[in-house]
Amino acid sequence: MFEARLVQGSLLKKVLESIKDLVTDANFDCSQNGFALQAMDSSHVSLVALLLRNDGFEHYRCDRPMTMGMNLTNMSKMLKCAGNDDIITMKADDAGDVVTFMFESPEQDKISDFELKLMDIDSEHLGIPDTEYAATVKMPSAEFQRICRDLSSIGDTVTISVSKDGVKFSTTGDIGQANITCRQNTSVDKEEQTVIELQEPVTLTFALRYLNSFTKATPLAPTVQLQMSKELPVVVQYLIADMGYVRYYLAPKIED
């Protein structure tokens, strides 16, 4: 038996919006620790990892680990039927082939249940080693979203260069080129600022199409963290307050 009740149901709606553009079908892994997912996009150059810890739910029960395969487009259709203030409960039997989403209005005067058919999905689980990254950038998530969106109107790829002075985003396209530099913010009173931790300067190039998909997670967190090392996939992480994270990995473009 799996049962998870989330008073802030809008969080689950936002989580789904943050992954459904990247992945169509995915296995959710439910365990005593929480509700998790790891999935690659169809071209296998990007990966999303989600964790919602058990203690972030008002009620959480998972008698034995289970995998629930869902079509995310269909899951999204159902979650869109929940009000933003609704409480969402997910329920599934151990041997069942459906998951039930129950929506309760805050005044408890409307209760809905939606049953989604589960599916068998073959998926590769990747082991991602813990790595010390050469550069870590924390910046306002809305700023990162804006930069990715703006640059994708000029070019298809972005080169991200991190030095001790700041982080530079550059692109080139048919119409010209663009550079945006965010300097490390030195004012201490600003909560959302650009902070750089640097072991050594690093420059990597990525497809903007994927980064733009990652920024669908912007409503989940005020800050985004980018971690980069030479010739390694970038990690783009959004922390979900008191609950877990949505983390994306993207392979860099490498010169032939």
Binding site: H44, E124, L126, G127, T205, P233, P252
Partner: peptide, 14 residues
């Protein structure tokens, strides 16, 4: 030109 490797070449498959 530039190429993009699969993530499976960076991480190991479980």
């Amino acid at each position: 030109g530039s190429a993009q490797k699969s993530l499976t070449s960076f991480f190991f498959t479980k």
